[in-house]
Design a protein around this nucleic acid. Structure first.
Lengths: 418, 418
DNA sequence: CCTCTTTATTTCGAGGATCAAAAAAAAATA
DNA sequence: TATTTTTTTTTGATCCTCGAAATAAAGAGG
């Protein structure tokens, strides 16, 4: 239950509403805010006055080139870039990136490091991530606000509290308490999330019309991951390890997966699986580890040029992915799917088989209409997901009047309400 | 976004909160309401005064046997049974039931009719359902409030608006506009929902501690259905046809399913499938239709007594169900599962195989810990789900001050907020 | 240059809602 | 009958939003 009981809760809610409008729709005048939020002009005045006071929003410098109509000119309000900044860090195979983003959403500094992740132990890896963010922070413009939050996206399984990476294919060491490490270095709250979930959040943020309350983001790269929104909430929450789409079983006792089991979707559709099949290697052969994008591009090219094991490999991959989606769509109404990552570059080789496989045992629904979109580059999405996650934390918890000063809510649990 | 902007929204919210407390926690005094809702005593007085005025709640007759402490005695408030009543109707194979439930949740009258559903055409079926509810209404105590809402649960696929049954295994005629029929007869709002969804709602209502924000209710009967809660919301909404768990593919090109395709879970775990396998019939043989509980109980008994085709049939069923759950748990963190319906009576024959199959390719998680509960009789659950659904509609939309009098919300869409 | 018109924003007073504290009510106890 | 105890209501203060009126800040027109 949206727990709004007292009237100052209401004020907080409306403050959030104003901030959300500015973040989502961009800078605008009080009048525009009034129509965007549905609040009266006077309320907008009161609320923005508070937000100006607290520094969260700022009046835009008298916009020069704007067409000047008759009447008192609007004064544009925007999220104040100098109000704060956040860190967006991502860890993937052999790659660490760290960005500093100001409160208005502008990337102030970004650093990408190539790191041999598999050769590092946990400690080195954590240190390298922290160090990358420190560099980015140091390199950013001095006019930046204080760092208030850090969001970390990792290619791996995180704990449900969003504090640690429990396991990852990109490194041998497990159980990386990343939140602790970053907190120690920066003294701000930190959340750690799976990269696919951040990708899903980023898509929802960037294209809410296409990726609305229910959709899936499928990461096709060395492994297969998924970020899944159902009815407007991220499955498994921002932490937690759920949505192991890549490890749904496609063929019992089938091809050998990186995870050690057999028959996972990933063992047919991950880069290593496609490469393995394209080279006519045994499906039980040990997955190779380092496949760069160029290598996969070559495989895809050959598949495009002629019939052969490469094309066959992509067909099998498509069948595996399609079977997974089909299972999913037996549970849900079909919803849009975004394919993200290097594997999405070969989507032309996959789409047909995927659609066929989904269709072949669809329930009534016209599943050929499943909307599919591709995003070959996952890194900006992960960064944006982390950014949006951190910024909306600031919007909701930092820049609205804090809840009443410490009085443990003694409310007896009503359980859920609906 | 919980869209609460004006202060009368706040009042409505708190009215709902009070009603929810009374409905969930039962009759209680204003003082108790205050701690249950977190509202101040004075606010509770104001709100309950309004609700007493509108007739939604009533002061309980001076409770006789209550231990009498010192001080002014509490006066117990309860939902007023005479405030309104609702209809809860369910349609399943050869069975129509209709109940009238008063606003406090007491069943005032219930009627169960045996009807040869498969022999009826749409029209007869709808008429029989309406007639059953009319009989129940006529047979109910005269002191009943006016009928304000009807909830219908059907074993079949409904449209997403919750107005019609689009398809059902229990009758040949499809596209039954049930809402229209009931509205014509009773002139009150009607919602039509899949029975499995109502079962899930009932479980959540009856045992919120076990069946919380995420759980599945699996109906094991002639066919296989599922009602699925994820993050506190019913997948597919109250209408819509999603969650076709029974028609996930277990074995491509496998046994013949009622739906005409092959290899569905239902084709291994539905009553007809178990019966077919137990009788060593070909897996491609046409599903039989009328299997009563006694027949299935005999099959189960024989399976319990000795090794043989019966026991094997249940094992296969368990494997099919387990495989479906395994796929599901690759998408979600494992959550509790309730098995409901006649098939749940043979759960002892299924559990082991189900758990083995889930476990055999579980992801990291200790999936042997999946909580499983059984409810052999699905009918009371369907009725309770319909009841709860109708009553909470009254709570939320009828007995709280209606929203402001007609002024089309001109609010520009902010899209989602989180 | 001054006045009129137009549009944006702020101010002001009203209407509600919640809350804490004080008051009243209602019973048991002494 | 007075006192104590507990529940409920009343009262007054505070906070929030809203509509209307007032104010501010332009452009347009003469």
């Amino acid at each position: 239950m949206a727990t709004i009981a007292r009237s100052d809760d209401l004020r907080r809610q409306n403050q959030r509403r104003v901030l959300a409008a500015l973040r989502r729709l961009g800078p605008m005048s009080r009048t525009e805010l009034s129509v965007a939020t549905g609040l009266s002009a006077s309320t907008v005045t009161t609320i923005t006055a508070g937000l100006l006071d607290s520094g969260a929003v700022a009046e835009a410098p008298a916009s020069d080139g704007v067409l000047s109509r008759r009447g008192r000119p609007q004064v544009t309000l925007s999220l104040n870039p100098a109000a704060a900044c956040v860190g967006a860090v991502s860890l993937s195979l052999n790659r660490i990136s760290a960005a500093i983003v100001d409160y208005s959403g502008q990337v102030a500094a970004e650093i990408v490091r190539r790191v041999a992740t598999r050769a590092c132990d946990e400690d080195e890896l954590a240190a390298a991530m922290v160090q990358a963010l420190q560099s980015a922070h140091a390199g950013a413009d001095a006019a930046l606000g204080p760092l208030r939050h850090i969001a970390v996206g990792v290619q791996g399984v995180t704990d449900s509290a969003g504090t640690a990476m429990l396991w990852s294919p990109i490194t041998t060491g497990a159980n990386l308490p990343l939140a602790r490490r970053f907190e120690a270095a920066f003294h701000v709250p930190v959340t750690v999330a799976n990269d696919c979930k951040l990708i899903a959040r980023a898509l929802r943020w960037r294209q809410p019309d296409q990726f609305g309350d229910s959709f899936a983001a499928v990461l096709l790269s060395h492994g297969i991951g998924m970020g899944l929104f159902v009815n407007g909430s991220l499955v498994g929450g921002i932490g937690s390890s759920a949505t192991e789409f890549g490890h749904m079983t496609f063929e019992p006792d089938g091809a050998l997966c990186r995870c050690g089991r057999r028959g996972c979707i990933e063992a047919y559709a991950g880069d290593y699986a496609i490469w393995r099949a394209a080279h006519d290697l045994d499906a039980s052969s040990q997955p190779v580890e380092d496949l760069d994008m160029a290598t996969m591009a070559r495989v895809a090219d050959r598949a495009r040029r002629r019939e052969g094991p490469e094309r066959q490999a992509y067909r099998t991959a498509g069948r595996a992915i399609g079977a997974g989606l089909r299972s999913m769509f037996a549970l849900f109404d079909p919803f849009p799917v975004a394919f993200v990552g290097s594997g999405a570059a070969a989507f032309d080789l996959l789409e047909r088989t995927i659609r066929e496989t989904i269709g072949e045992s669809a329930i009534g629904m016209a599943t050929s209409e499943v909307a599919m979109r591709c995003f070959a580059d996952e890194f900006p999405l992960v960064r944006d997901g982390a950014t949006w996650s951190a910024l909306s934390y600031l919007d909701d918890h930092v820049f609205v009047a804090p809840p009443l000063p410490a009085s443990a809510s003694s409310e007896r649990s009503l359980g859920h309400a609906l």
